[in-house]
Design a protein around this nucleic acid. Sequence first.
DNA 1: CTTCGACACTTCAACGATGAAGGATCGGTT
DNA 2: AACCGATCCTTCATCGTTGAAGTGTCGAAG
Lengths: 342, 342
Amino acid sequence: MVTIADVARHAGVSSSTVSYVLSGKRAISEETRRRVRSAVRELGYHPNAGARALAARRSHIIALMVPLRTDVYVPVMMEIAIAVTTAARQHGYDVLLITNDEGPDGVRRIAASGLADGLILMDVELDDERIPVLRAQGTQATLIGLADDARGVSCVDHDFAAAGALCADHLADLGHREIAFIGYGSGVYHRHAGYAERTLAGFRDRAGQRGLRFLHRTCEGTYESTAGTLARVLADRPGTTGFVVQNEGAIGPLLTLLRTSGRTVPEDVSVIALCQDQLAEQFAPRLTAVTGSAQELGRVAVEQIMGRLAAASDGGRPDDDQALLTPTLTVRESTGPAPLLP
Amino acid sequence: MVTIADVARHAGVSSSTVSYVLSGKRAISEETRRRVRSAVRELGYHPNAGARALAARRSHIIALMVPLRTDVYVPVMMEIAIAVTTAARQHGYDVLLITNDEGPDGVRRIAASGLADGLILMDVELDDERIPVLRAQGTQATLIGLADDARGVSCVDHDFAAAGALCADHLADLGHREIAFIGYGSGVYHRHAGYAERTLAGFRDRAGQRGLRFLHRTCEGTYESTAGTLARVLADRPGTTGFVVQNEGAIGPLLTLLRTSGRTVPEDVSVIALCQDQLAEQFAPRLTAVTGSAQELGRVAVEQIMGRLAAASDGGRPDDDQALLTPTLTVRESTGPAPLLP
DNA sequence: CTTCGACACTTCAACGATGAAGGATCGGTT
DNA sequence: AACCGATCCTTCATCGTTGAAGTGTCGAAG
């Protein structure tokens, strides 16, 4: 194993000088810097992570707490995780993966052991138990999602309300008047999952403003569940011409069911999805969709943590940022003008 | 911050004793152990990760290198990542997430810095550049996937050949004689991705033994691509009554296309999928599927790494294990007896 | 000719844990 | 009484890096 002392010897300087060259915290002459750098390269030196963490009281690791639960669309989680990892590396940080089932104790463990300098929490609930722990330990953290009391932490999330509103606007612009909103399973709403509630609220408000009639129906995302949901919608409101689908699992079944019931998309009914573009492109017809960027979400979360860590190490009190990322509407082939009244 | 010295003082012993109580490496009297344990609890002591790593030359972290690429079905990757994390925690280990784009340098960085004690590599290529690095650094590692030269590392993977063979057997048992194998996009085969090639080879061999005629066709997984693939299959072999689908993205489109072309499943044609059960359950009809457990894969990978670490720290040379996990066939509603000849 | 500040580097004491080696205590042997 | 071995605990050096404080040198100002 190559240590900083080996590098120092090889470059003919003290180990402190090597440390300073590497951290850039003191002025070092051009000549010395060159010699140290080439010694580092020649010996293939990599600073020992443990020693560094111990001495500097910084692990250069952030922890990412991901849900075990899989009613969230999983690829999005993975995309966020990868975006976080990539963004963190650009700041010289690595990412530790923690699962949600460790709960508040997990947060305590990571913070108290100094394993990570900061945490990013996914799948945050409105009154999440982990948040008080973070405050108590004085740990820097960013939530992906919103919480009721987010003092002492930063937050970033998609602007789900705006996404809901975009759906309502698009369908209203096309002349639709009766809309069905196919949501997640009822469990998601009972859990008060922010993304589900806020999308619905955003949609509802805008729908009201635009004079749309609409039904919200829960749906588990299986074929059977979607069939049941659709049947009830068509029974209650036979005049429905627009569908907003938030549940990724329900999209395929819904399209199939509409086709088999003799309705063509977008001539008879329009379908707008709240899902990733990649998924929206896979269906036939390609779906008009409202999307937020998972990559951006991960990137912003990392920026927020880095900001907090920098502020804290300068002795300041970090700002509790709240970022809401604006969603985008991409019009494809699944939405069109409302059919003329028969 | 609570240190081991604080605990020692509180329990009226030396810090070594606390360390021994916690690690269990020396006999400590019942009474002392009790006092130390309660001091730990009362003070909320968590050993400092950096100090521990430095002194013990063990970080209690394993790194998991995940692909950035997303032509693999992403939920499976996430499931593996979570299984790895959960299994690692049971051994007192945490998991660091590294992305594949760091390549061999990433492996070097992690190994040389002592950040992780071992690595698990996903998305392994047959002549993966990272493997020689692992050998050179003497780093313990497990591959998820197979490589040409896996000396010095352990491997675990699904037995894709067996999965292919299971498909052939099931369709042959049902009396089908002309089968189409809908695979991944051609890029996957050009890359010589092991899972794709081995499934196909396993299917081909068994199909030969059972006297099946079959076509292998690549498919990108979009609706258009699936439509094109299916059209060609039906043009070349109108008598095809069995479909094996390995590309998750092609399943939905294929079912829709078969239906719109007037073929019912499973009366006219049988469809068997190589995909997760969760996905297979989502379609109508529910799909007969051959599955390997992603959870098991993650679990075994962790066991292998733990075994290697234990052997290495006992001064031994770890065994280069190779595990192939047996897939399961779950018969559902999408396969049935071959139709009688007209 | 002293004094001073700037610069470039070195010395050295942390950081918090581990574990080999070295006591202390005790009942049991000789 | 002296010794022994077992048991249980402590002392202390060590891990590799960091960064505050200190040293040495040099040129400019007083």
